[in-house]
């Protein structure tokens, strides 16, 4: 992996969803800060895993990078171009180079489209492989690439199993020969036996086609399997980022420690002595995050500077960065 060739960059990216005003003459009570100041670089050809619990903003971040959700602050650069202020027409053209694989492959396929039509839709939109016969050939090729029988192209999504549908979703994502694919919990709604197949497919496609992935998941074990680097999100912020092995084996942020401790170890002797860090309480409201460090309300290692200083990411060791005062007070 060549570090330094940045394909996607987020700069202090913010996505705030304003809450509706309680009455016609009252002001909005605030906003849900789903993504609240994220700096992120995704290098060409790598898989960046993005983990965090439900509601931490990881899916919103993935959507915002593709501008499927409008950022309310900061900027997103794709291959050196700022896409945040890009007019709709240019943005649509750029969408050929990006794609998304969705969590629920049934919901993400239009029930009125045959799978062949769904896979071929990006070709129609971007005017690729023009002509019925050439488009058909390309759809067949895509179906073969993801391990589907091209003869099934005239069937409807409801006739497929979950794993097959996800293959359709992946084939559709590949149609425009994208550089960057956001995989938004691509295996979360699949049977365990099918999850491995889909992960292996994604890994193989990356190797063969030189794709760059953002792999969003709440499953740290799955992320460690596919990701070169891992970013951990908590309440709209990235709290730790770095080499996948390093983050998994030597977590430097207490939140990552808790996440890692929750992953079962497939070795009985080690599983028996595994220390489980159970976080107390719920994730605080993203409308009104805690002062200072956002994790302090649930952190088992909270100390004096935490309520007053908002920690920033700082290098810890050579392979990762963490936003925690334990490594020197910042912010």
């Amino acid at each position: 992996m060549t570090q330094g060739d940045v394909l996607v960059r987020a700069k202090s990216l913010e996505v705030h969803f304003p809450l509706p005003a309680p009455g016609p003459f009252r002001s909005s009570p605030g906003a849900v800060r789903a993504v609240d100041g994220v700096d992120l670089e995704i290098f060409r050809g790598e898989t960046l895993g993005l983990v965090g619990e439900s509601g931490c903003g990881k899916s919103t971040l993935g959507n915002a990078l593709l501008r499927l959700v409008e950022p309310t602050g900061g900027a997103v650069e794709f291959d050196g171009t700022d896409v945040t202020g890009m007019p709709a027409r240019e943005l649509r053209a750029l969408r050929r180079r990006t794609a998304m694989v969705f969590q629920d492959p049934f919901a993400s396929l239009d029930p009125r489209f045959t799978v062949g039509e769904s896979i071929g839709e990006p070709l129609v939109i971007h005017g690729l492989h023009r002509g019925r016969e050439r488009r058909r050939a390309r759809v067949s090729e895509l179906m073969e690439i993801v391990g589907l029988n091209p003869d099934l192209r005239n069937r409807y999504p409801h006739e497929f199993s979950g794993g097959q549908r996800q293959r359709v979703g992946i084939a559709r994502a590949l149609a425009g020969e994208p550089d960057f694919i956001v995989c938004d919990e691509p295996i979360a709604s699949l049977d365990v036996s099918v999850q491995a197949q889909v992960v292996n497919l994604l890994v193989r496609l990356q190797r063969e086609l030189g794709l760059t992935y953002l792999f969003v998941s709440h499953d740290l074990a799955a992320v460690r399997q596919v990701a070169d680097r891992v970013a951990v999100m908590y309440l709209g912020r990235v709290v730790e980022i770095g080499d996948g092995v390093a983050v998994g084996d030597e977590p430097q942020h207490p939140y990552t420690e808790a996440l890692v401790s929750a992953v079962p170890v497939p070795v009985p002797e080690r599983e028996r002595v595994r220390e489980r860090i159970v976080l107390q309480g719920d994730i605080p409201s993203p409308t009104n995050p805690p002062s200072g460090c956002r994790f302090r309300t649930r952190c088992p290692r909270v100390f004096e500077p935490c309520p007053d200083h908002d920690p920033v990411l700082q290098p810890v060791g050579s392979r990762q960065e963490a936003a925690c005062h334990l490594h020197g007070v910042t912010g």
């Binding site: 239009d110 990006p122 149609a175």
Partner: peptide, 26 residues
Amino acid sequence: EEVYVRAARSAGAGNVRIIVRHVLPN
């Protein structure tokens, strides 16, 4: 609000295409 509408947008579909091909039939 369906995911397939967002999926169409992520593939680069414009409003006209989304309305005519995805929303109307459903």
